[in-house]
Nucleic acid binder design. Structure first.
Lengths: 130, 130
DNA sequence: CCGAATCCGACAGGATACTG
DNA sequence: CAGTATCCTGTCGGATTCGG
């Protein structure tokens, strides 16, 4: 770790820093937090349909651990917790917008390619619709 | 599919189109193919250290299915197969460069945040070094 | 309200052996 | 050389229950 050269960026580094892009819920949670200011736990659960309490908590812990969101606890009764993006997290949402733009732009291309593949290879499995 | 509005981009769509960003080997393989022209099967296996034959084949099939790479078979003996990026695949590598840049730029921030978390929570598990 | 703890199924992915 | 086929394991994530 004595090397300060940040230009050496391998695919390995990317996965080490951005492994949150691989899991199921980090991106939806970040997207929800990116829409506005601060959200409470229940609001997030409603804003990210389908997420379980377990995965919401795990995802929030990991995002907090990586410094992408911060967690504020108000010692009221019952407890109140607010989640919001950090500066790093906000910059990440900009990147995610670029990713979403790419997906929207090339969606037709990818889908038609998959349809062609599906026609040529009738046996291979397909992921169901979203 | 009668809607032509591409501005409606949900996180669901992104994962549907770009689920290859989530798996273990698609990005390294795309990076290897993005470095130069066309690669053969064995060259890819050498250029992507650690990948097994099984995962290399699976990854290549999925990338081909999505129209990100194309596969050319020369009917020589023994068989010779070449893989190369399509136009869509090349445009994706541009996006991946942006992702890699973000990771390099915020690597220190994320790492220090994890170190702090690790200091405050001595029990939580950590992914090993890359 | 905001979680932690536990159990469990599914599937991605590694190792190995075999084939045209 | 360029793959299949098979077995096996770890991990992710869902469902449920309990606690502060």
């Amino acid at each position: 770790m004595s090397v300060t050269n940040t230009a050496v960026t391998t695919a390995c580094d990317v996965r080490e820093v951005l492994d949150r892009l691989g899991d199921r819920w980090s991106v939806p949670v970040l997207a929800e937090l990116g829409q506005g200011g601060v959200r409470r736990y229940r609001e997030l659960q409603r804003g990210v349909p389908g997420i379980s309490q377990r995965m919401l908590t795990l995802t929030l812990r990991r995002l907090e651990r990586d410094g992408l969101i911060d967690r504020t606890v108000y010692p009221t009764v019952p407890a109140q917790v607010e989640y919001g993006l950090t500066e790093t997290g906000r910059s990440l949402t900009l990147l995610l917008h670029a990713v979403a733009d790419w997906a929207a732009e090339h969606r037709e291309s990818v889908m038609s390619s998959r349809a062609r593949w599906h026609a040529d290879h009738p046996d291979t499995s397909d992921a169901p619709a979203c």
